[in-house]
Amino acid sequence: MRDWIDRRVRRRLDVIENSPACRVWTGRRNRRLLVLAGGAALLMLWAGLAVIVRFAPSDLARDAYLSMGAVAMTVLVLVYGWLTLATRGVTAVPAQYLDERQRGEQHRAYAGAHSLTTVVLVLLAVLAALWSMGDRLTLNVPTALLLPLAFTLLATHYTLPLLLESWRLPDPPPDED
């Protein structure tokens, strides 16, 4: 099993190193444009939750959320793939396959994303507290909110390290001497 994982990760790194997209998106400016697109897609996922809260249960809520989710996920998947290539897989492979500089970058990315995710969770807790304030003993929460909320949190948690790392990295040194 360990050999199989090892072969898989090394093959993945090989694909990353030899991909032409690696060179297209590796410059800081292009990378930051992708990060902005990824951030916008994440915001769209969160905005979709607001649509559910406001309009569910209704066809409008379902159609609007599914449309927004489809657009956001298409953008996120593309951005995630290109940024993984642009950052040479620093947040996509286990630390033992990276050198000391890359491990430091991976650590910084995860640490920064952890702080940001904490902010997101605190905001979510504040919103939940505001929503449930008052003398009510029960609150109607649309069932349609539960899965998209979990999914949006997962997408945020999964993509933030790569987005942060891609924003932070300087222009890489030229490949050729």
């Binding site: 040479r88 050198d99 000391e100 500089r101 890359q102 040194p173």
Partner: peptide
């Protein structure tokens, strides 16, 4: 050195 070639560049 067993590092990525970009590390040498950095």
């Amino acid at each position: 050195l067993g590092v990525h070639y970009q590390t040498v560049g950095y």
